[in-house]
Design a protein around this nucleic acid. Structure first.
Lengths: 212, 212
DNA sequence: TCCTGATTTGACCAATCGGTTAAAGACACG
DNA sequence: CGTGTCTTTAACCGATTGGTCAAATCAGGA
């Protein structure tokens, strides 16, 4: 009565969302069937619809539940920290999300790729505002000469694309690399890329380049 | 009799493939219905199946027909050319593909994102071999000191992800940037990124950074 | 114990899925 | 004209889709 939800309800809703994540991330919204989610959750189809009113409700709940986690790394940029450290840390955390939560990445990738019909509002409002905040921080660093001059918004796009690539196109990456774990190599590569890209001090950049 | 295909057949097959590209790139294979393709092509559903034996045949034809075009930019790397020019040219051509053929990009993105069930063989053989060739060229440049040291395969992944991002996640990019055309900014950004990333000569890099 | 509400399910629904069939319509060619 | 081929479609098929409903089952408190 206090929480409004039984233990059974909480547990089954979790099981359903887990199965839904597995399915939606693999096949997208339209490509996913209630039967498949039900089977994955070990429940009957009518029982699914006892816990969620519709397929779309499961999808919506998944998207909104993961969105905060998904954008969290970008919120942590500290204007008073060291710019290079902050941004490399961001890249690192974002790549870790791709490694540890590839299904969540593919869930969003499917959604956006197909026109973001369920989260377009959120993108245009929350995401845009969040990016604008982060871009402001980056602009401040550049203005203070603490960071190489670069378009902050496109820089953020670059972090997204470079890191999420290893989750969203995992199959392709492994097909090209062989089946070895791509992430150690990806981590080294992205660290080197962004270090070289963002280094504000020409002399340090030169030294690094000369050594490397 | 000579070509084995009537004018009507050729024209209708084209119309069907155009409608199929529109549909598959938007909704993926499972999310696309024959009825939608038929409607888009202005034909009846049985008439579709007079020209193609199945939905999968349309999809397969689209994938194989676009694959060469899609990978062409990577084949043009000239070992005897200027490394920086060659790679910047590759980035430029790849970004132009994202701008001028976003549906083709999303067609592949959907396919790979959902596990590449129809082209996994091609990825593991042709694509892998192609990347290995290109990586060899890049390694040669690095060994000759004509290019900054960098992992060639991950560099290619980076080109793919950075350029295709503007086609595949177009909706998200526009949501963040507003609805202005993202490509001029993307072009400037990627040019600057790869210039800085690949510049082999420390002094030139320093000069560029100091000026920029 | 019984009772009440929470949970589960078999049977079912209209709509849509990919695909088939047979027959009609359009066309070229003699 | 006629004829044989190419093209198109109405009608239909079994399977699957998202979703409903009433009845059965379960769990827990008095």
């Amino acid at each position: 009565m206090s929480s409004g939800r039984t233990r059974i309800q909480q547990k089954n809703r979790e099981v359903i969302l887990e199965a839904g994540l597995e399915a939606f991330s693999e096949a997208g919204f339209r490509g996913t069937t209630l039967d498949r989610i039900a089977k994955g959750a070990g429940l009957s189809k009518p029982n699914l619809l006892y816990y969620f009113p519709s397929k779309e409700a499961i999808h919506r709940e998944l998207l909104s539940r993961q969105l905060d986690l998904w954008l969290a790394p970008l919120r942590t940029l500290d204007p008073d920290g060291d710019p290079l450290e902050e941004l490399l840390g961001y890249v690192h955390r974002k790549l870790a999300l791709s490694r540890d939560h590839p299904r969540e990445s593919r869930l969003f990738a499917n959604e956006v790729l197909q026109g973001a019909p369920h989260i377009l509002d959120t993108l245009q409002q929350d995401l845009r505002a969040l990016v604008e905040d982060a871009a402001g921080v980056i602009r401040g660093w550049i203005a203070a000469g603490r960071l190489a001059p670069i378009d902050p918004v496109h820089l953020i796009f670059s972090v997204w694309s470079l890191t999420q690539h290893y989750a969203d196109f995992d199959v392709q990456v492994r097909a090209v690399l062989g089946d070895a774990d791509p992430f150690p190599g990806a981590e080294r590569h992205l660290d080197a890329v962004f270090r070289r890209l963002l280094m504000p001090d020409p002399e340090k950049a030169c030294a690094e380049a000369a050594v490397g």
